[in-house]
Amino acid sequence: MGEPRAQAVMRGLLKVWTDFSCDMDATPLLDKLNRGKFRLEDYRVLLINHRQQVVEGSRWIARAGSSITGEYADQRSLFLRHAISEHRDYRMLEADYVSVGGVLADILQAEKNIGAEALHAFMYQRASERNPFDLLGAMFIIEGLGRQKAGEWGRSIQKQLGLGDEQISFLLYHSVNDEDHMREFETVLNSGILDIPDMDRQIVKTARIVARLYRLQIEELGNV
């Protein structure tokens, strides 16, 4: 269990996350999923969007790692290892996409929608700042989706579209494989970074920004 300051940050993040997870349900795509009206085309669009996130995700985490100064070498190692652990996950998405009738070239070349552009631009900007530990707030939101929602969506999509496990491998895999990331997250939070002035508040604020931009890119699916 962490120190009181880390616990306060966790409470702040948890609150942002709980609001975010409900707001996500109100997006047209997830509303449709919740109403049981999901189409194969919706799943393909979601996979394209996820691939962009996974590809960009490991890149901005790597950039954030390289923006961390020498005094935080341990944390830098964790960021870089995290980037490595995910940087090939997009292959699963591509396989899922092709298995449901998608053309590989389409998912490889798809242009980001206007929400995704805003999300990723923000991430790279922050990742380029010195010691951008506020991005832990971003990771909490995005990892939280993998941990809590990906499996729920995956099972629901699988059921509605009658897909085999191998056609929805990414969503199902992420729901069981993100447990360790939360421990890693807590380690960094308790590693002394909260001694940086105002960092506790910045982490929660970045989480709020990312939650909003993440929802925006889901709202703007297809709007390239």
Binding site: P4, Q7, M10, L13, L14, M182, E186
Partner: peptide, 12 residues
């Protein structure tokens, strides 16, 4: 379980 886990980590 995940929510209880998160609440525990958050001291809540």
């Amino acid at each position: 379980r995940q929510i209880v886990d998160l609440l525990e980590r958050a001291g809540a």
